[in-house]
Each structure stands twice: as C-alpha cells, then as structure tokens.
Amino acid sequence: MQRVNMIMAESPGLITICLLGYLLSAECTVFLDHENANKILNRPKRYNSGKLEEFVQGNLERECMEEKCSFEEAREVFENTERTTEFWKQYVDGDQCESNPCLNGGSCKDDINSYECWCPFGFEGKNCELDVTCNIKNGRCEQFCKNSADNKVVCSCTEGYRLAENQKSCEPAVPFPCGRVSVSQTSKLTRAETVFPDVDYVNSTEAETILDNITQSTQSFNDFTRVVGGEDAKPGQFPWQVVLNGKVDAFCGGSIVNEKWIVTAAHCVETGVKITVVAGEHNIEETEHTEQKRNVIRIIPHHNYNAAINKYNHDIALLELDEPLVLNSYVTPICIADKEYTNIFLKFGSGYVSGWGRVFHKGRSALVLQYLRVPLVDRATCLRSTKFTIYNNMFCAGFHEGGRDSCQGDSGGPHVTEVEGTSFLTGIISWGEECAMKGKYGIYTKVSRYVNWIKEKTKLT
C-alpha cells in the first residue's frame, strides 16, 4: 500500500490518463441519441435557420407576430419608411378606419389613436360632414345658397324668414311668412316636400332668348283662358290664391305678392273693366268669414305684352289694390325667389296649380277651390304637342294621358313649387288646347323671366 501511494504521488498524470480511459469505455446513459432527441424537440425550422439574422431580410411573422416588435424591426421587413409607417399605425392600436367614419364618399386613412378623412370636392370637416359648395344638395341650405369668396357655403332665406341657429334652416321672422300653410287642420295635408338634388348652379339658368321682337298675326285659340281631375282644397291650404270678379264672377285667378299687390295673367284683364279681388276665398257660393274683398285701382301688364300681336306672350300683369290686405292664416303671400332659384325650383319637376275653373272641358265651374299636382314636361315634348308657338318664356306641365289639367277660369292662378315646406311661385296658368285632352298640356308663363320686374313694381313704400 505504501508503494502504491508513492507511485500516485510521483505520477499524477498517469492516474488522470487511467481515469479518462475508464470513462470513455463506459456506456453513456444520461444523453439520448440524435434521433430520439429530435422526437422530443420537434420544432419547425425557421426561415433563416442556421444563418445569422443580421444578414437576412426581415420576416413579418418572425419579427412582429411571434413577439412584439419595434418600429426598427418592422422597418427591416418593409425596407421602406412609408410602408412601415402605414403598417405601424394599425399594428400599434388597430384600424381606426374600420367603422368607416368618413361621410359623403370620403376616404379614410388610419393613424395612431386617430384617423384622417380625405374629402371629395365640396366637403370638409373631420368626417367630411361639412358642405362647402352650393353645387351639392344646395349646400344643405333649406332655401338659398351662395358661395363666399373663400368658396364656403353661405345660406340665406327669402323675405319674412331668418336663418336658424344651425345656419342652414329657415324659420319665420314674421307672423305670416310667405308660402307657408298655417291653418292647423290643413298642415297635415301639406304636399310632399321637395329635397334639393345635386345641381350645376353655374349652368342652372337656361341660355334662352326671349323672342321679344317676333311679330306674329293673332292666333285663334280655343278655350285658351284655361282644375280638371283635381281635388277639393281645404280652407287655408292655398292662402296665396285669390279669385278675380268682373263682368262675371271667378273669371280668373291670381296670387298675393304682398298686402297691396296681386300677380295674374295679362290676358285676364281689360282696361276700363272694374275688377274686384277676393282673398281668403274657399267656396265661392258661401260666406265663410275668411274672405277679404278689395278693388283694383291700377293694372300693370308687362311692358312687352301686346294682345294685338299675341294674347299669351309675356302673359303676366300686376294688380294694385285700393287697401292693403290683412295677412292671416287664410290670406298669405306666395314666396318669389330670384331668377336663378325660381328656375331651379321649376326644374324640380312638379308643381301645384289651383283655381275655381271648370271641372271638365266646357263644363261647370268649381264651387270649392280645386288643386292638382302636375309634372313638368320637357321642352321637346311640349313643342311636338301643339302647332302653336311655345315661346321661351312659357313652359308645359300636365299629363300625356289627359284627364287632369287646369281649365277655363283658372287662368292667372299660381303654379307653385314647394321647397322644404315653403311654396314659391314658378308659373302662372296661361293657356292650353281644350282641357285635359290626351297628348295636350297646360301652358304656363315662366315666372323666372319676370321676377325682377315683379319685385321692382310691387315694392311697398
């Protein structure tokens, strides 16, 4: 034993070699072989497995989906700052455009905790909710729209109204504003409101030439003092309507412009014939205590009207009353817009006519005020429907199939267009061939041609 100890002390290297040989010859039971080890760690190889990531292109799944990435790591994937920024906006807080917040056709661009709407022409605001041009839906104005110097929408209202708090709607500024039905039992019968379409306001006024200088022999019209197929109006439903009495009662109609003036057809009036105007009328054979009678003290036909040349060209006249009318729910003026808007309103496509005229061709006159909704007829169809001249200051309205029309005794009465609950004068009943005849239409004086003249002559002093 002493000898062994001496050998170990003198030859430590020998001992180490012996131990190493023993270990190498022993069977290893701690580690699995290569094949079995792979069965336990069965993990798919990654895209760049075996390579240094710093030297390969980034992978979106590896960089940002398996674990949260930084902007720089995302930049490695896209290799483009702009594309990385677009991805980053949604990656950080989701897609803010998912709810489609942009209105009126706006395009949404996502941002971090926010979004941006790219608005089409005519709109602005956070969600493109603000109209900035009158060309689109009248700028959301209830009545009139004008573009300011910086191309912003400025709404306005006709006389007797003021802008509401929203700067879009119009509200009454006087007790009985024009064009409004205020009798409670008839307010439910107000005709369907007309909503502004998209309009090209630059070209809204037709490029028409008034044929002022045409000389033409007097034409022989049949029954051209021209509501057939209409309905009984309720008291106060058309408070701007008046009836004219002269040699015979209810020979023509008219509309209240203001307390002192009536507008009617020029062919209705004769110099030297006494005319009485009755406002607030409903049943011409009954006294309903809503009527107001006034005498006409002055007749002003349009300066281009000449019955000797043509009885229905420039067929418009103004009547001055001896005493002002007292405005109330049964006696209310009709609204008159400017030339541009009167023309736009007419193009809405349908209007209402009213009167006490004959209820059928050569038949009896109506006792109760009649009204009828009539569609506008395109000019080409209008011209083809008659052998008589249709001037540019006239328009056609009615039904091709016949059966409904204005008729004798309705002449001078109103053709009105309702705009968001307020009625505007767009025409004056003038003439036609018979009444409600198939293929024939009622012919009306186009008020847009005469609004400046009306307003100039009827100013209240």
Rank of each mutant, 00 (worst) to 15 (best):
R3M: 06
A436P: 15
Y115L: 05
E35V: 07
K68D: 15
T386A: 11
V92R: 10
I136E: 13
G254A: 03
W356P: 11
D33A: 12
S329C: 05
V269D: 02
W88C: 13
V153R: 11
C178D: 00
A337Q: 01
A192E: 12
R43S: 15
D131W: 09
V263Q: 00
K260M: 06
E116F: 13
G122T: 07
N213A: 05
A265Y: 01
S148R: 04
V154E: 05
Q2S: 08
D33L: 07
Y91S: 15
L369K: 14
E418P: 11
G21D: 01
E320D: 00
R379A: 09
G246M: 05
M65F: 09
E285G: 04
L383H: 14
E208P: 10
Q241F: 14
D200F: 12
V77K: 12
T287D: 10
A308N: 11
G402N: 12
K347Y: 13
E66D: 06
L24M: 06
A37P: 15
Y161A: 01
L32P: 15
L425T: 00
V228D: 08
C178H: 00
K45V: 09
K274F: 07
C145Q: 03
D200K: 10
Y115H: 15
T381Q: 13
E433Q: 14
T194Y: 12
E53G: 09
T389L: 13
N258R: 02
K126D: 13
T84E: 12
P44V: 08
N100L: 09
R62H: 12
A366P: 14
R379M: 15
G94L: 10
A380E: 08
P239A: 03
S49Y: 08
G122A: 07
I454F: 01
Q185L: 08
F424N: 01
T85I: 06
T445K: 00
E323G: 04
D93W: 05
T332C: 06
S148D: 08
D131M: 09
T29K: 06
L321I: 08
I454A: 01
H282P: 10
S148H: 10
L319M: 13
I316V: 10
D111K: 11
K51R: 07
R364M: 14
I284E: 07
N203S: 07
V174G: 05
T16S: 03
L211Q: 06
T290G: 10
H34E: 05
G402E: 14
Y47L: 07
V248C: 08
I40N: 15
C268F: 00
Q219G: 10
D33K: 04
E193N: 11
S220F: 08
E124A: 11
S329E: 10
Q370W: 03
V4T: 11
S169Q: 07
K387E: 15
K188E: 11
L20R: 01
A366T: 08
I300N: 02
R384I: 11
S114Y: 06
Y91C: 15
A307P: 11
F55C: 14
N166F: 02
V199A: 04
V4L: 13
L52T: 15
N258C: 00
N127P: 03
L14H: 02
S255T: 12
T190E: 07
V263Y: 00
E208C: 15
A192N: 09
A266I: 01
R46W: 04
V269P: 02
T133E: 13
Y161L: 02
S187Y: 07
A279C: 03
A192K: 10
E208I: 11
F78H: 14
V447K: 00
F224C: 06
N343Q: 12
A164Q: 05
E66H: 06
G272C: 05
I344G: 14
N452G: 15
I336V: 13
V183P: 12
A192H: 07
Q185I: 10
Y444H: 04
G357K: 13
N222A: 05
L327T: 06
P120A: 07
R62I: 13
A9R: 14
E35L: 04
S182Y: 10
A192F: 05
P235I: 07
L23R: 01
H361C: 08
P414S: 06
K274E: 11
F31N: 15
I299N: 04
F87C: 06
R358V: 10
M394V: 05
Y341A: 12
Y391D: 15
A266T: 01
D405I: 12
A366W: 13
T381M: 14
G230N: 09
C170T: 00
V359Q: 13
N5G: 13
E66A: 10
S107P: 08
V263N: 00
G280D: 01
W118F: 11
Y312M: 10
S365W: 10
D200I: 08
L346S: 06
R62L: 12
E98K: 11
T422G: 01
A279K: 01
D150A: 06
